[in-house]
Amino acid sequence: MTAPAQAPAEAPGKVPVPASASRRGPGRPSGARAWRTRASAALTAATVLAALLVPVVFPLDQQAVDLTAKLQPPSWEHPFGTDELGRDLLLRCVHGLRVSLLVGVVAALAATVVGIAVGGLAGALGGRTDRLVMRVVDVFASVPHLLLGIFIVAMFRPGVWPVIASVGITHWLSTARIVRAETHSLRNRPYVDAAISGGASRWRVAVRHLLPGVLPQAGLAAVLMVPHAIWHESALSFLGLGIPAHQASLGTMTEAARGSLLAGAWWPTLWPGLFIIVPTLAIAGLAGAWRERINPRVRSELTL
């Protein structure tokens, strides 16, 4: 009787389950993904805290020029080194991050509000209004939005608000499409019919029944838009159209560092570049984790 000894190993009717899947429930993210989410959260928190606290805790003048210490490599005195005018790069990077975050968040919020309004209107009214509005959206979307953004900032004096307006005006399209599709599917639900039959006005249906259903998707779109808006701010500033050149922003710093790069100084380019890449990736990582939460199918498709 040696055969039964191995029988339990392959009991009938038992599907082999991967070890990772059995350890964690279906709702829990697997190890690598949880780690990524945690890293994103930590980096996002660090970014926001740095941008908020450093200028308050260290009230040093980020514009202080010291020509005797120009283009110094990283040292204890200047951890990130100095730029071609002897300004401390760490301090300027943090101040630049402040501007970029401000632009990113405000522009994303503005774009989301416009997107919800336009998409919600088209979705809720339907019919001819819907078709007309969505064709306008298509026309806007057919123009490369950096080009449109350049066109908009070029009409104004350089500054923070033209950049916010430029990003806001060019980025509401995707939100409008998402909100319109969501509203469309919600407004044909029987519960909307029941509300209408119960005497609810158009406004009440929109605010009480449609808007709450749309907000999670729109909020996700808004968070995903923040990194995008930061890239746009940097790109516009790099081209000399966004933030004025003397004001620290990640884009203007990268632009100013081009000359130093030819002189053999790598640090004025590296730090602003990292300050653009790391926070935006962190925010995008967080948004990705959120998307997996509200739409688990994305996760299962990625796992497959």
Binding site: D193, I196, S197, G199
Partner: peptide, 15 residues
């Protein structure tokens, strides 16, 4: 509208 009350087939969708 309010002189008619409606009950739908699927309560999950109607709530």
């Amino acid at each position: 509208r309010t002189t008619v009350g409606v009950v739908f087939q699927q309560p999950r969708l109607a709530a």
